[in-house]
């Protein structure tokens, strides 16, 4: 039991890490990773939704009639997304403004619905929470690292939390602002994916 718990948790961190291994949830990945901070914020919001929707779907897996299961999952997910939206407005307002429309759009993030359908609907609540937490943290790490690459090259800074950079390259660096704009997002993710393939292929 403990072993499989650890397995479900850690698979999200490397073997099935979204969005690299599990190519889902690309929209927020590309859109919000202008800074590390935005990436972490988006990742944590998604993790919260993932963990709670997985828990609830798993608890109700024997109650929900199979024919309307997708509708039920969507209601559950949308509820937690709205909670995140309200809580973020109340406590981390500047971050909420930066992530904008992508917070309500967690509801259509295929990772969340995908985990509910593929994992939580077939497994116990404890395993489902471990799965949600693992995938969520993996997603957060991916967003943070993509954010780090883009922010470092595109603005010459690293911002972890609170809007002020914790690291700046210095004035000699001419920021390559292509990286923080839309086209740079695609290219950066594509190259990082290639890097992952290079390391992961045995």
């Amino acid at each position: 039991m403990a072993q499989s718990l650890a397995k479900e948790f850690t698979k999200g961190l490397w073997a099935e890490i979204p969005p690299f291994r599990l190519v889902l949830g690309l929209c927020p990945t590309l859109a919000v990773t202008k800074t590390v901070e935005n990436g972490i914020g988006m990742g944590l919001a998604t993790t919260f939704v993932l963990v709670f929707s997985n828990l609830l779907v798993s608890l109700l897996r024997n109650t929900i009639p199979p024919k309307v299961r997708i509708a039920c999952y969507i209601v559950i997910i949308a509820t937690f997304v709205t909670i995140v939206e309200l809580v973020m407005q109340a406590f981390t307002y500047p971050l909420f403004l930066k992530l904008g429309i992508f917070i309500p759009l967690i509801v259509v993030n295929c990772i969340v619905l995908g985990r509910a359908e593929a994992f939580a609907s077939k497994n116990t609540p404890v395993l489902s929470v471990a799965d949600g937490l693992g995938i969520g943290i993996g997603f957060t790490l991916s967003l943070a690292s993509l954010g780090a690459v883009r922010e470092l090259i595109g603005s010459g800074t690293i911002t972890i939390w609170g809007g002020n950079p914790v690291f700046a390259v210095g004035d000699w660096y001419q920021p390559f602002s292509f990286m923080v704009e839309a086209p740079g997002a695609f290219v950066a993710l594509g190259l990082m994916l290639a890097g992952m393939n290079l390391i992961g292929k045995k």
């Binding site: 839309a182 086209p183 695609f186 290219v187 594509g190 190259l191 290639a194 393939n197 290079l198 292929k201």
Partner: peptide, 23 residues
């Protein structure tokens, strides 16, 4: 296409170039 870049990876880079033309 070089092996690690195949499929999604090169696809994303291509999309980046198309996005660049749209700017």
């Amino acid at each position: 296409v070089p092996k690690p870049l195949q499929d999604t990876s090169i696809g994303l880079v291509t999309a980046g170039i198309i996005a660049l033309t749209f700017t």
